[in-house]
Design a protein around this nucleic acid. Sequence first.
DNA 1: ACTGAAATCGCGTCAAC
DNA 2: GTTGACGCGATTTCAGT
Lengths: 157, 157
Amino acid sequence: MNGSELDGLDRKILAQLQADGRATNVELAGRVHLSAPQCFRRVRALEERGVIQGYAARVRPESLGFGVMAYVGLTIAGEQFGRVREIEASIRAFPQILECHTVSGDHDYLLKVVTRDLKSLSQFLTDRLMQVRGVDDVRSMICLEEIKPAAPLPVDL
Amino acid sequence: MNGSELDGLDRKILAQLQADGRATNVELAGRVHLSAPQCFRRVRALEERGVIQGYAARVRPESLGFGVMAYVGLTIAGEQFGRVREIEASIRAFPQILECHTVSGDHDYLLKVVTRDLKSLSQFLTDRLMQVRGVDDVRSMICLEEIKPAAPLPVDL
DNA sequence: ACTGAAATCGCGTCAAC
DNA sequence: GTTGACGCGATTTCAGT
């Protein structure tokens, strides 16, 4: 679903829409020096090709009561490797888990987790995550300070 | 900048706008069972209070040529603690680094990085990151499989 | 004071050139 | 690739509760 390459204008559009996903088509067209219908066609093409996967409001976690963010490394017990797909389904089902990848290195999975406070994090880890059959080790890295918040993907690297 | 609490309608709105950041006001109003002006006023209030920090298009990294994503744990040499703010500025300046937090645990910083391929990652780590004065240890966790991609913040926890 | 109805204005969107 | 036209949505104002 990614036939041709992206040219400079597509990249400009992507940069703009990452920075301001609600820009109107005419604003966008002006910023990338394109006529409105041209711009519109390109945006739609990018959406249809799946280059643009969607649009989302960025919400401050604290506003929703999430005072704690953490990355959590998960290890699966060797004798439970047959159950990985079930374990992954469990992971996906927890709303506190915002992201999850399998990774190289010391852990099998790396999760991004939000909770109300440290107590809730502790409860989530011990009462929820560690109760998933097959989870062997849980190691959390609590986020202390945000040094660089959610930067857009570079369009010109 | 977060005076009052969020009620159920605000939370519905946030859920909707996280799922579809480009929904028109009337669509949104319909989905949360509100009149258009009401809905509009609430959205604007959420924006002004900083609850909604912005809107962004979600772009597939592969479309921009980023085939590799990794989390990187950074450690700062003890004798360089006086330079942390400079080091952080360096980190922010790398466009390949999408996110960075200071964290508890084995590392001082945890970064999220994208590169074209493994070779570029290796080059970035050795020629760029490790060249930053004060960086002592660099440990990468390469993302293999995406188990749960960028879920919205839960609005009802 | 807060809600919803209405009215205006500008944008999204398509078609024709 | 551009211009123009049409219809719909965004946004404000105002009147009613």
